[in-house]
């Protein structure tokens, strides 16, 4: 197993954001993480990559306990992340943005090597022609790709994708799903939070569902879609239910 999350709980003051979440991820897998808004999906990512230490529970990455490590220590062990809210370093060029991933991620390259890797990662996500631009000038879809390229340039073992499809139009979604598949085919395991149901159902090998900080279902996409608890969790969100039922 590349990632094992064991009985993870986290509290913020009076709010139990995650309670006893456990799951495992096999190498080469694409796992979808779904759930209604506020279910704790992003918080779970934050615990996995060390932004927050969990109140209790363990996170094991490639047979090493990484619970409580700083996020930069986690990054160096080969766990990269693309954020939901894209946060490019606006004052740097697109290439420099991606170089940060290559320089400080798992392989810790020198600047020269990092520039080459950055161009490679940019080509991988289809941003090759934008390398010299300032990152602040990209549009939303391009920023999402930049976010992916930054994570990829680190050559991670595991990639966390937080809603990389949100805000994209249908053709951009198709292209991005293609990119995600290609990344997996290059041997990178993927754990992705996604709201675009059709896409996540089609691309994921397995899906886990969070609701109010608890894991309520796990399994193959079709099993999860048929799970009454999952449907119930989405009932507060009729549109989402309809989309889920339509799969």
């Amino acid at each position: 197993m590349i990632l094992q999350v064991q009985e993870v709980s986290i509290r913020f003051g009076g709010l139990q954001a995650l309670s006893n979440v456990s799951f495992e991820l096999a190498p080469g897998e694409i796992m979808g993480l779904i759930g209604p808004n506020g279910a704790g999906k992003t918080t779970l990512f934050n615990v996995v990559n060390g932004v927050y230490p969990p109140t209790s529970g363990e996170v094991i990455f490639r047979d090493e306990k990484i619970t409580g490590l700083h996020s930069y220590e986690v990054a160096r062990r080969g766990l990269a992340r693309a954020h939901q809210v894209v946060r490019p370093l606006n004052d740097l060029t697109v290439r420099e943005n991606v170089m940060v991933g290559a320089c400080f991620g798992r392989e810790r390259h020198s600047l020269g090597k990092a520039a080459a890797l950055a161009d490679q990662a940019l080509a991988q996500v289809g941003l090759g022609d934008r390398a010299g631009q300032l990152a602040g000038n990209l549009n939303v879809a391009q920023k999402k790709r930049l976010e992916m390229a930054r994570a990829l340039a680190a050559h991670p073992y595991l990639l966390l994708l937080d809603e990389v499809l949100a805000g994209l139009n249908p053709s951009e979604i198709t292209a991005m799903v293609e990119t995600i598949r290609r990344i997996r085919d290059d041997g990178i395991t993927i754990l992705m939070i996604e709201h675009v149901m059709q896409a996540v159902m089609s691309v994921s090998d397995r899906i886990i569902v969070l609701d109010y900080g608890q894991l309520i279902a796990a399994g193959k996409p079709e099993e999860v879609a048929a799970n009454p608890q999952v449907i119930e969790a989405y009932l507060g969100d009729p549109e989402m239910t309809a989309r889920l039922m339509a799969e």
Binding site: V51, S71, Y72, R87, L89, V100, L111, A154
Partner: peptide, 27 residues
Amino acid sequence: KRSRFGLGLSAIREDEDTAMVMGVNAP
């Protein structure tokens, strides 16, 4: 400015949390 260290500093300037997630030892 022209070093790997400097690139890390720019990353910290732009967004310290993101920089750390990308592996920059910000402290």
